[in-house]
Design a binder for these strands. Structure first.
Lengths: 229, 229
DNA sequence: ACCTGAACACCGTTCAAGT
DNA sequence: ACCTGAACACCGTTCAAGT
Protein backbone atom coordinates (compact mmCIF):
# COMPACT_ATOMS: atom_id res chain seq x y z
CA UNK A 1 0.00 0.00 0.00
CA UNK A 2 3.01 2.27 -0.35
CA UNK A 3 5.84 2.95 -2.75
CA UNK A 4 3.61 2.34 -5.73
CA UNK A 5 5.88 3.93 -8.27
CA UNK A 6 9.52 4.80 -8.07
CA UNK A 7 9.30 7.82 -10.35
CA UNK A 8 10.86 10.99 -8.94
CA UNK A 9 8.81 13.01 -6.50
CA UNK A 10 7.24 16.14 -7.94
CA UNK A 11 4.75 18.65 -6.60
CA UNK A 12 2.22 17.16 -8.98
CA UNK A 13 2.68 13.65 -7.64
CA UNK A 14 2.53 14.88 -4.06
CA UNK A 15 -0.75 16.70 -4.70
CA UNK A 16 -2.21 13.72 -6.55
CA UNK A 17 -1.39 11.35 -3.70
CA UNK A 18 -2.74 13.83 -1.15
CA UNK A 19 -6.03 14.15 -3.00
CA UNK A 20 -6.37 10.38 -3.23
CA UNK A 21 -5.61 9.99 0.46
CA UNK A 22 -8.24 12.57 1.43
CA UNK A 23 -10.79 11.04 -0.94
CA UNK A 24 -10.57 7.59 0.53
CA UNK A 25 -9.62 8.19 4.14
CA UNK A 26 -11.35 11.47 4.86
CA UNK A 27 -9.78 14.79 5.62
CA UNK A 28 -8.29 13.78 8.96
CA UNK A 29 -6.48 10.86 7.34
CA UNK A 30 -4.28 13.33 5.51
CA UNK A 31 -1.17 14.03 7.53
CA UNK A 32 2.29 14.85 6.28
CA UNK A 33 3.61 11.67 7.84
CA UNK A 34 0.97 9.42 6.27
CA UNK A 35 1.32 11.14 2.93
CA UNK A 36 5.06 10.63 3.01
CA UNK A 37 4.57 6.96 3.83
CA UNK A 38 2.16 6.62 0.91
CA UNK A 39 4.82 8.01 -1.41
CA UNK A 40 7.58 5.85 0.08
CA UNK A 41 9.38 8.78 1.62
CA UNK A 42 9.80 10.46 4.98
CA UNK A 43 7.46 13.32 5.88
CA UNK A 44 10.26 15.88 5.81
CA UNK A 45 10.95 15.29 2.14
CA UNK A 46 7.57 16.70 1.24
CA UNK A 47 8.79 20.14 2.22
CA UNK A 48 10.98 20.10 -0.85
CA UNK A 49 7.88 20.19 -3.05
CA UNK A 50 5.37 21.99 -0.91
CA UNK A 51 5.87 25.03 1.28
CA UNK A 52 3.85 23.67 4.19
CA UNK A 53 0.62 21.87 4.90
CA UNK A 54 -1.48 24.91 4.07
CA UNK A 55 0.12 25.09 0.65
CA UNK A 56 -0.63 21.40 0.17
CA UNK A 57 -4.28 21.90 1.08
CA UNK A 58 -4.68 24.85 -1.24
CA UNK A 59 -3.10 22.72 -3.93
CA UNK A 60 -5.60 19.89 -3.68
CA UNK A 61 -8.51 22.32 -3.34
CA UNK A 62 -7.41 23.85 -6.62
CA UNK A 63 -7.60 20.44 -8.31
CA UNK A 64 -11.21 20.10 -7.22
CA UNK A 65 -12.19 23.62 -8.28
CA UNK A 66 -10.75 22.93 -11.73
CA UNK A 67 -13.23 20.08 -12.13
CA UNK A 68 -16.14 22.50 -12.09
CA UNK A 69 -17.75 23.26 -15.42
CA UNK A 70 -17.82 26.76 -16.88
CA UNK A 71 -20.45 26.67 -19.64
CA UNK A 72 -19.68 28.52 -22.86
CA UNK A 73 -21.37 31.49 -24.49
CA UNK A 74 -24.15 29.51 -26.14
CA UNK A 75 -26.19 29.19 -22.96
CA UNK A 76 -28.47 31.78 -21.42
CA UNK A 77 -27.23 33.36 -18.17
CA UNK A 78 -29.62 31.52 -15.86
CA UNK A 79 -29.10 28.13 -17.47
CA UNK A 80 -25.33 28.68 -17.51
CA UNK A 81 -25.19 29.56 -13.82
CA UNK A 82 -27.48 26.65 -13.01
CA UNK A 83 -25.23 24.26 -14.89
CA UNK A 84 -22.13 25.58 -13.15
CA UNK A 85 -23.74 25.29 -9.73
CA UNK A 86 -24.85 21.71 -10.36
CA UNK A 87 -21.36 20.84 -11.56
CA UNK A 88 -19.75 22.52 -8.55
CA UNK A 89 -22.01 20.58 -6.22
CA UNK A 90 -21.13 17.34 -7.98
CA UNK A 91 -17.40 18.05 -7.71
CA UNK A 92 -17.72 18.73 -3.99
CA UNK A 93 -19.66 15.48 -3.60
CA UNK A 94 -16.88 13.57 -5.32
CA UNK A 95 -14.40 15.06 -2.84
CA UNK A 96 -16.34 15.45 0.40
CA UNK A 97 -13.46 17.12 2.23
CA UNK A 98 -13.06 19.93 -0.33
CA UNK A 99 -16.04 22.09 0.53
CA UNK A 100 -15.01 22.46 4.16
CA UNK A 101 -11.60 23.45 2.90
CA UNK A 102 -13.02 26.05 0.52
CA UNK A 103 -15.02 27.57 3.35
CA UNK A 104 -12.25 27.43 5.95
CA UNK A 105 -9.04 27.93 3.97
CA UNK A 106 -5.76 27.41 5.87
CA UNK A 107 -4.63 30.88 4.88
CA UNK A 108 -6.73 33.84 3.83
CA UNK A 109 -3.73 35.23 1.93
CA UNK A 110 -3.63 32.29 -0.45
CA UNK A 111 -6.20 33.14 -3.15
CA UNK A 112 -6.29 30.75 -6.08
CA UNK A 113 -6.47 32.00 -9.67
CA UNK A 114 -9.31 29.61 -10.40
CA UNK A 115 -11.36 31.13 -7.60
CA UNK A 116 -11.06 34.63 -9.06
CA UNK A 117 -11.71 33.37 -12.57
CA UNK A 118 -14.90 31.65 -11.45
CA UNK A 119 -16.03 34.72 -9.55
CA UNK A 120 -15.40 36.94 -12.55
CA UNK A 121 -17.36 34.57 -14.78
CA UNK A 122 -20.29 34.32 -12.36
CA UNK A 123 -20.52 38.09 -11.96
CA UNK A 124 -20.40 38.58 -15.71
CA UNK A 125 -23.22 36.15 -16.35
CA UNK A 126 -25.32 37.55 -13.52
CA UNK A 127 -25.02 41.02 -15.02
CA UNK A 128 -26.36 39.73 -18.33
CA UNK A 129 -29.77 39.27 -16.80
CA UNK A 130 -29.79 41.35 -13.66
CA UNK A 131 -29.25 44.83 -12.31
CA UNK A 132 -26.05 45.75 -10.51
CA UNK A 133 -27.78 45.51 -7.16
CA UNK A 134 -29.31 42.11 -7.85
CA UNK A 135 -26.06 40.74 -9.25
CA UNK A 136 -24.26 41.90 -6.11
CA UNK A 137 -26.60 40.03 -3.80
CA UNK A 138 -27.19 37.26 -6.31
CA UNK A 139 -23.55 36.23 -6.17
CA UNK A 140 -23.74 35.94 -2.41
CA UNK A 141 -26.97 33.94 -2.54
CA UNK A 142 -25.66 31.64 -5.26
CA UNK A 143 -22.27 31.00 -3.66
CA UNK A 144 -23.71 30.45 -0.24
CA UNK A 145 -26.19 27.95 -1.63
CA UNK A 146 -23.49 25.97 -3.43
CA UNK A 147 -21.17 25.65 -0.46
CA UNK A 148 -23.88 25.87 2.15
CA UNK A 149 -26.15 23.20 0.84
CA UNK A 150 -23.24 20.90 0.18
CA UNK A 151 -21.86 21.29 3.69
CA UNK A 152 -25.27 20.86 5.22
CA UNK A 153 -25.81 17.75 3.14
CA UNK A 154 -22.44 16.30 4.06
CA UNK A 155 -22.95 16.91 7.74
CA UNK A 156 -26.13 14.88 7.71
CA UNK A 157 -24.46 12.56 5.27
CA UNK A 158 -27.28 10.22 4.61
CA UNK A 159 -26.08 7.53 2.27
CA UNK A 160 -27.69 4.32 1.12
CA UNK A 161 -25.60 2.39 3.62
CA UNK A 162 -26.03 4.31 6.83
CA UNK A 163 -29.56 5.60 6.39
CA UNK A 164 -31.06 2.61 8.22
CA UNK A 165 -28.70 2.92 11.17
CA UNK A 166 -29.25 6.64 11.44
CA UNK A 167 -33.03 6.30 11.45
CA UNK A 168 -32.95 3.48 13.98
CA UNK A 169 -30.70 5.42 16.32
CA UNK A 170 -32.81 8.51 15.95
CA UNK A 171 -35.95 6.64 16.89
CA UNK A 172 -34.26 5.12 19.90
CA UNK A 173 -33.12 8.51 21.19
CA UNK A 174 -36.19 10.51 20.28
CA UNK A 175 -39.56 8.74 20.50
CA UNK A 176 -41.83 9.36 17.55
CA UNK A 177 -44.69 10.56 19.77
CA UNK A 178 -42.70 13.55 21.01
CA UNK A 179 -41.42 14.60 17.60
CA UNK A 180 -44.01 13.61 15.01
CA UNK A 181 -42.91 16.05 12.32
CA UNK A 182 -39.28 15.07 12.58
CA UNK A 183 -40.24 11.41 12.61
CA UNK A 184 -42.28 11.96 9.46
CA UNK A 185 -39.39 13.82 7.83
CA UNK A 186 -36.89 11.07 8.62
CA UNK A 187 -39.37 8.54 7.25
CA UNK A 188 -39.70 10.59 4.07
CA UNK A 189 -35.94 10.44 3.66
CA UNK A 190 -36.05 6.68 4.10
CA UNK A 191 -38.81 6.13 1.57
CA UNK A 192 -37.25 8.42 -1.01
CA UNK A 193 -40.05 10.94 -0.72
CA UNK A 194 -38.13 13.72 -2.40
CA UNK A 195 -36.38 11.60 -4.97
CA UNK A 196 -38.29 13.17 -7.87
CA UNK A 197 -36.85 16.57 -7.00
CA UNK A 198 -33.15 17.02 -6.33
CA UNK A 199 -32.86 18.95 -3.10
CA UNK A 200 -29.85 20.96 -4.24
CA UNK A 201 -31.55 22.01 -7.45
CA UNK A 202 -34.77 22.83 -5.63
CA UNK A 203 -33.01 25.46 -3.54
CA UNK A 204 -30.96 26.60 -6.50
CA UNK A 205 -34.11 27.28 -8.53
CA UNK A 206 -35.70 29.17 -5.67
CA UNK A 207 -32.73 31.51 -5.81
CA UNK A 208 -32.29 31.83 -9.57
CA UNK A 209 -36.02 32.16 -10.29
CA UNK A 210 -36.36 34.60 -7.43
CA UNK A 211 -33.58 36.77 -8.80
CA UNK A 212 -35.07 36.75 -12.27
CA UNK A 213 -38.53 37.59 -11.00
CA UNK A 214 -37.26 40.51 -8.94
CA UNK A 215 -35.62 41.93 -12.01
CA UNK A 216 -38.90 41.96 -13.92
CA UNK A 217 -41.47 43.21 -11.46
CA UNK A 218 -43.85 44.51 -14.15
CA UNK A 219 -46.22 41.58 -13.77
CA UNK A 220 -48.10 41.78 -10.48
CA UNK A 221 -45.84 44.18 -8.57
CA UNK A 222 -44.99 43.00 -5.06
CA UNK A 223 -44.07 44.84 -1.91
CA UNK A 224 -40.37 44.03 -2.35
CA UNK A 225 -38.50 47.05 -3.60
CA UNK A 226 -36.90 46.91 -7.01
CA UNK A 227 -33.17 47.06 -7.59
CA UNK A 228 -32.52 50.52 -6.21
CA UNK A 229 -29.06 51.83 -5.62
CA UNK B 1 -4.84 35.12 32.91
CA UNK B 2 -5.60 31.90 34.75
CA UNK B 3 -7.08 30.65 38.00
CA UNK B 4 -9.70 33.35 37.96
CA UNK B 5 -11.93 31.75 40.54
CA UNK B 6 -11.21 29.01 43.01
CA UNK B 7 -14.75 27.60 43.01
CA UNK B 8 -14.96 23.85 42.42
CA UNK B 9 -14.76 22.61 38.87
CA UNK B 10 -18.06 21.60 37.32
CA UNK B 11 -19.11 20.61 33.83
CA UNK B 12 -20.88 23.95 33.59
CA UNK B 13 -17.74 25.92 34.45
CA UNK B 14 -15.66 23.85 32.04
CA UNK B 15 -18.10 24.50 29.20
CA UNK B 16 -18.32 28.19 30.01
CA UNK B 17 -14.55 28.59 29.97
CA UNK B 18 -14.30 26.58 26.75
CA UNK B 19 -16.86 28.78 25.03
CA UNK B 20 -15.06 31.92 26.16
CA UNK B 21 -11.73 30.54 24.96
CA UNK B 22 -13.14 29.71 21.53
CA UNK B 23 -14.87 33.08 21.27
CA UNK B 24 -11.75 35.09 21.86
CA UNK B 25 -8.98 32.90 20.52
CA UNK B 26 -10.71 31.09 17.68
CA UNK B 27 -11.52 27.45 17.39
CA UNK B 28 -7.92 26.26 17.16
CA UNK B 29 -7.05 28.04 20.41
CA UNK B 30 -9.25 25.56 22.26
CA UNK B 31 -7.16 22.62 23.40
CA UNK B 32 -7.62 20.50 26.48
CA UNK B 33 -4.27 21.67 27.79
CA UNK B 34 -4.98 25.37 27.30
CA UNK B 35 -8.47 25.01 28.73
CA UNK B 36 -7.06 23.29 31.80
CA UNK B 37 -4.52 26.07 32.21
CA UNK B 38 -7.29 28.66 31.96
CA UNK B 39 -9.13 26.92 34.78
CA UNK B 40 -6.00 26.54 36.90
CA UNK B 41 -5.90 22.80 36.53
CA UNK B 42 -4.07 20.14 34.54
CA UNK B 43 -5.61 18.95 31.29
CA UNK B 44 -6.30 15.47 32.64
CA UNK B 45 -8.65 16.79 35.30
CA UNK B 46 -11.08 17.89 32.63
CA UNK B 47 -11.88 14.26 31.91
CA UNK B 48 -13.65 14.11 35.24
CA UNK B 49 -16.28 16.51 33.94
CA UNK B 50 -16.32 15.81 30.24
CA UNK B 51 -16.15 12.46 28.45
CA UNK B 52 -13.69 13.63 25.82
CA UNK B 53 -13.05 16.56 23.52
CA UNK B 54 -15.97 15.68 21.28
CA UNK B 55 -18.30 15.81 24.26
CA UNK B 56 -16.86 19.20 25.17
CA UNK B 57 -17.45 20.52 21.66
CA UNK B 58 -21.02 19.28 21.55
CA UNK B 59 -21.50 20.94 24.92
CA UNK B 60 -20.45 24.39 23.78
CA UNK B 61 -22.34 24.03 20.50
CA UNK B 62 -25.45 23.37 22.56
CA UNK B 63 -24.95 26.64 24.44
CA UNK B 64 -24.93 28.52 21.16
CA UNK B 65 -27.98 26.73 19.75
CA UNK B 66 -29.89 27.62 22.90
CA UNK B 67 -29.34 31.30 22.13
CA UNK B 68 -31.47 31.04 19.00
CA UNK B 69 -34.95 32.47 19.21
CA UNK B 70 -38.05 30.32 18.74
CA UNK B 71 -40.91 32.79 18.14
CA UNK B 72 -44.25 32.03 19.78
CA UNK B 73 -47.63 31.25 18.32
CA UNK B 74 -48.60 34.84 17.66
CA UNK B 75 -46.54 35.15 14.50
CA UNK B 76 -47.41 33.91 11.03
CA UNK B 77 -45.37 30.93 9.78
CA UNK B 78 -43.22 32.86 7.34
CA UNK B 79 -42.47 35.71 9.73
CA UNK B 80 -41.73 33.22 12.51
CA UNK B 81 -39.27 31.22 10.41
CA UNK B 82 -37.69 34.43 9.18
CA UNK B 83 -37.22 35.66 12.74
CA UNK B 84 -35.69 32.35 13.81
CA UNK B 85 -33.31 32.30 10.85
CA UNK B 86 -32.14 35.86 11.53
CA UNK B 87 -31.62 35.00 15.18
CA UNK B 88 -29.72 31.81 14.31
CA UNK B 89 -27.47 33.76 11.98
CA UNK B 90 -26.81 36.34 14.69
CA UNK B 91 -25.93 33.65 17.24
CA UNK B 92 -23.47 32.06 14.82
CA UNK B 93 -21.93 35.47 14.19
CA UNK B 94 -21.43 35.98 17.91
CA UNK B 95 -19.61 32.63 18.08
CA UNK B 96 -17.83 32.33 14.72
CA UNK B 97 -16.51 28.83 15.46
CA UNK B 98 -19.94 27.34 16.16
CA UNK B 99 -21.31 27.05 12.65
CA UNK B 100 -18.38 24.98 11.45
CA UNK B 101 -18.95 22.76 14.44
CA UNK B 102 -22.64 22.36 13.69
CA UNK B 103 -21.83 21.35 10.13
CA UNK B 104 -18.92 19.06 11.00
CA UNK B 105 -19.85 17.56 14.38
CA UNK B 106 -17.14 15.52 16.14
CA UNK B 107 -19.51 12.59 16.37
CA UNK B 108 -22.56 11.84 14.27
CA UNK B 109 -23.98 9.77 17.14
CA UNK B 110 -24.19 12.75 19.44
CA UNK B 111 -27.50 14.44 18.55
CA UNK B 112 -28.53 17.30 20.82
CA UNK B 113 -32.06 17.65 22.13
CA UNK B 114 -32.13 21.28 21.09
CA UNK B 115 -31.35 20.31 17.49
CA UNK B 116 -34.34 17.97 17.33
CA UNK B 117 -36.59 20.47 19.06
CA UNK B 118 -35.66 23.17 16.55
CA UNK B 119 -36.19 20.80 13.64
CA UNK B 120 -39.59 19.78 14.94
CA UNK B 121 -40.57 23.40 15.36
CA UNK B 122 -39.37 24.39 11.89
CA UNK B 123 -41.22 21.52 10.24
CA UNK B 124 -44.39 22.34 12.11
CA UNK B 125 -44.35 25.95 11.04
CA UNK B 126 -43.50 25.10 7.46
CA UNK B 127 -46.50 22.78 7.30
CA UNK B 128 -48.76 25.64 8.41
CA UNK B 129 -48.26 27.36 5.10
CA UNK B 130 -46.96 24.72 2.72
CA UNK B 131 -47.66 21.30 1.28
CA UNK B 132 -45.86 18.23 2.54
CA UNK B 133 -43.59 18.25 -0.47
CA UNK B 134 -42.69 21.92 -0.16
CA UNK B 135 -42.11 21.62 3.57
CA UNK B 136 -39.77 18.70 2.97
CA UNK B 137 -37.59 20.64 0.56
CA UNK B 138 -38.22 23.92 2.34
CA UNK B 139 -36.50 22.65 5.47
CA UNK B 140 -33.44 21.72 3.46
CA UNK B 141 -33.36 25.06 1.67
CA UNK B 142 -33.85 27.01 4.89
CA UNK B 143 -31.28 25.09 6.92
CA UNK B 144 -28.70 25.14 4.21
CA UNK B 145 -29.11 28.89 3.84
CA UNK B 146 -28.68 29.52 7.55
CA UNK B 147 -25.51 27.49 7.94
CA UNK B 148 -24.35 27.93 4.37
CA UNK B 149 -24.54 31.67 4.18
CA UNK B 150 -22.96 32.03 7.60
CA UNK B 151 -20.04 29.80 6.71
CA UNK B 152 -19.56 31.50 3.37
CA UNK B 153 -19.65 34.86 5.09
CA UNK B 154 -17.17 33.80 7.75
CA UNK B 155 -14.76 32.38 5.21
CA UNK B 156 -14.57 35.71 3.42
CA UNK B 157 -14.73 37.35 6.80
CA UNK B 158 -14.77 40.92 5.73
CA UNK B 159 -14.77 43.09 8.81
CA UNK B 160 -14.37 46.81 9.27
CA UNK B 161 -10.73 46.27 10.21
CA UNK B 162 -9.41 43.98 7.54
CA UNK B 163 -11.46 45.11 4.57
CA UNK B 164 -8.81 47.58 3.46
CA UNK B 165 -6.00 45.04 3.67
CA UNK B 166 -8.02 42.43 1.82
CA UNK B 167 -8.88 44.77 -1.02
CA UNK B 168 -5.32 46.03 -1.32
CA UNK B 169 -3.90 42.52 -1.42
CA UNK B 170 -6.49 41.44 -3.95
CA UNK B 171 -5.62 44.30 -6.25
CA UNK B 172 -1.93 43.52 -5.98
CA UNK B 173 -2.46 39.87 -6.90
CA UNK B 174 -5.13 40.34 -9.52
CA UNK B 175 -4.95 43.46 -11.69
CA UNK B 176 -8.26 45.25 -12.14
CA UNK B 177 -7.98 45.16 -15.93
CA UNK B 178 -8.10 41.37 -16.04
CA UNK B 179 -10.98 41.01 -13.60
CA UNK B 180 -13.20 44.08 -13.97
CA UNK B 181 -16.36 42.50 -12.53
CA UNK B 182 -14.58 41.15 -9.49
CA UNK B 183 -12.80 44.46 -9.01
CA UNK B 184 -16.16 46.23 -9.17
CA UNK B 185 -17.65 43.77 -6.69
CA UNK B 186 -14.81 44.23 -4.20
CA UNK B 187 -15.19 47.98 -4.57
CA UNK B 188 -18.89 47.67 -3.86
CA UNK B 189 -18.08 45.84 -0.66
CA UNK B 190 -15.70 48.61 0.30
CA UNK B 191 -18.15 51.42 -0.37
CA UNK B 192 -20.99 49.69 1.43
CA UNK B 193 -22.95 49.24 -1.78
CA UNK B 194 -25.26 46.61 -0.35
CA UNK B 195 -25.63 48.09 3.08
CA UNK B 196 -29.29 48.95 2.55
CA UNK B 197 -30.06 45.26 2.11
CA UNK B 198 -28.73 42.64 4.51
CA UNK B 199 -27.18 39.92 2.39
CA UNK B 200 -28.34 37.13 4.68
CA UNK B 201 -31.92 38.35 4.66
CA UNK B 202 -31.85 38.89 0.91
CA UNK B 203 -31.17 35.19 0.29
CA UNK B 204 -33.55 34.19 3.07
CA UNK B 205 -36.40 36.10 1.44
CA UNK B 206 -35.65 34.58 -1.95
CA UNK B 207 -36.21 31.18 -0.32
CA UNK B 208 -39.21 31.99 1.87
CA UNK B 209 -41.00 34.03 -0.79
CA UNK B 210 -40.22 31.39 -3.38
CA UNK B 211 -41.69 28.66 -1.21
CA UNK B 212 -44.83 30.67 -0.57
CA UNK B 213 -45.26 31.51 -4.23
CA UNK B 214 -44.90 27.90 -5.30
CA UNK B 215 -47.64 26.96 -2.90
CA UNK B 216 -50.08 29.40 -4.49
CA UNK B 217 -49.55 29.10 -8.21
CA UNK B 218 -53.03 30.36 -9.13
CA UNK B 219 -51.76 33.77 -10.22
CA UNK B 220 -49.88 33.58 -13.49
CA UNK B 221 -49.07 29.85 -13.56
CA UNK B 222 -45.45 29.09 -14.34
CA UNK B 223 -43.72 26.13 -15.88
CA UNK B 224 -42.55 24.85 -12.51
CA UNK B 225 -44.71 21.98 -11.36
CA UNK B 226 -46.86 22.43 -8.31
CA UNK B 227 -46.34 20.58 -5.07
CA UNK B 228 -47.05 17.09 -6.36
CA UNK B 229 -46.16 13.99 -4.45
C1' DA C 1 19.25 18.93 -5.58
C1' DC C 2 16.98 15.99 -2.84
C1' DC C 3 16.41 13.02 1.30
C1' DT C 4 16.83 11.86 6.36
C1' DG C 5 17.59 11.51 11.80
C1' DA C 6 17.07 13.88 15.49
C1' DA C 7 14.77 17.22 17.79
C1' DC C 8 11.16 20.69 19.20
C1' DA C 9 6.76 22.20 20.50
C1' DC C 10 2.59 20.88 20.33
C1' DC C 11 -1.90 17.52 20.38
C1' DG C 12 -5.78 13.98 22.93
C1' DT C 13 -5.98 10.40 26.10
C1' DT C 14 -5.05 6.61 29.66
C1' DC C 15 -3.93 4.99 34.06
C1' DA C 16 -1.80 4.05 38.24
C1' DA C 17 -0.77 6.73 42.06
C1' DG C 18 -1.68 10.21 45.15
C1' DT C 19 -4.99 13.24 48.44
C1' DA D 1 -14.40 12.00 44.57
C1' DC D 2 -11.25 14.60 42.35
C1' DC D 3 -6.53 15.79 40.77
C1' DT D 4 -1.81 14.72 38.86
C1' DG D 5 2.88 12.76 36.73
C1' DA D 6 4.33 9.96 33.61
C1' DA D 7 3.62 7.92 29.49
C1' DC D 8 1.79 6.78 24.74
C1' DA D 9 0.73 7.65 20.09
C1' DC D 10 0.15 11.03 17.37
C1' DC D 11 0.78 16.04 14.97
C1' DG D 12 3.62 20.00 11.79
C1' DT D 13 8.02 21.77 11.18
C1' DT D 14 13.19 22.95 11.33
C1' DC D 15 17.82 22.08 10.46
C1' DA D 16 22.22 20.22 10.26
C1' DA D 17 24.02 16.29 8.18
C1' DG D 18 24.28 13.13 4.67
C1' DT D 19 24.25 11.51 -0.64
Amino acid sequence: MAKKTRSPLTRERVLGAALALADEGGFEALSMRKLGHELGVEAMSLYNHVANKGDLLHGILELVLLEMEIPGEGVRWKAALRKHAVSAHAAYRRHPWACRLAVAPPSLDHVLDVQIRQMEWKLGRLREGLSEHLAYHGLHALDSHITGFTLWELSHNITAENVGDLAARFLRLFPADDYPRTYEHVEQHLTGFGRDTDAFEFGLDLILDGLERQHEPQTRPRKRRTAAR
